[in-house]
Computed example of a mutant assay.
Amino acid sequence: MSSDALFGIHGKALEIRSQRMAMLASNIANAATPGFKARDVDFTKALDAATADQPASTDAAVEGNIGYRVPVESSLNGNTVELPVEQTQFAENAVAYKTTLQFLQGRVDTVMQALKGDN
């Protein structure tokens, strides 16, 4: 049984969410860096690319769907990170990551029970 058959799109979704979390964390870490441009991944488009009929790798799907965030207010030093926006996006992504992880854990638990013959 392949992992795609077992986990469906959730395995790829977890990978994309993980990469997005790293990108958002980088934005937050560089909030005071002059000239830093905040980036984000369009999760829906990246997941669509990763699960298409001829799927791209999750790395390629993410790279192809990265965009720069347009700030509401520009800063004098050219930095486009708006800390409240980044923190909100990070928190929302973390909740979605945890939810996907819990779903996958449930699938693994079900398979383990089936293999053991537990009812």
Rank of each mutant, 00 (worst) to 15 (best):
N65L: 00
I66T: 10
I16R: 14
K98E: 11
N119A: 15
A96K: 10
V72H: 01
A38M: 00
S26A: 13
L76I: 11
Q89I: 00
G8R: 09
M21I: 06
M1I: 08
V111M: 15
Q105R: 10
P71I: 04
T88I: 06
S74G: 07
N30S: 07
E63F: 10
I66L: 14
P55D: 04
S18C: 02
L104K: 02
T58H: 11
E86Q: 03
V95E: 12
A25E: 10
K116Q: 11
G11M: 01
K12E: 05
A94E: 12
E63A: 13
Q113I: 00
S74Q: 09
K12I: 00
A32Q: 15
E15L: 13
D4Q: 11
M21L: 14
M23H: 04
F90M: 15
V62L: 05
R107A: 08
D109F: 03
T100N: 15
V81G: 04
A56Y: 13
N27F: 07
E63K: 15
F103T: 14
N30L: 08
A31T: 06
R69T: 05
F36T: 12
P55S: 06
A61K: 11
P71H: 01
L83W: 00
A91L: 11
A13C: 07
M1N: 09
Q105T: 13
A52P: 00
E15W: 08
I28H: 03
Q89S: 15
A56S: 12
Q105G: 15
D118K: 06
G106K: 03
L101N: 09
A50Y: 01
D118L: 02
G117W: 06
T99Y: 14
T100R: 11
Q19L: 10
V62Y: 03
Q105K: 07
A60T: 11
Q89T: 06
S74W: 00
V108R: 07
N77H: 02
A32N: 11
G11D: 12
D48M: 08
V108G: 11
A61N: 07
A61E: 04
Q19P: 10
D53M: 12
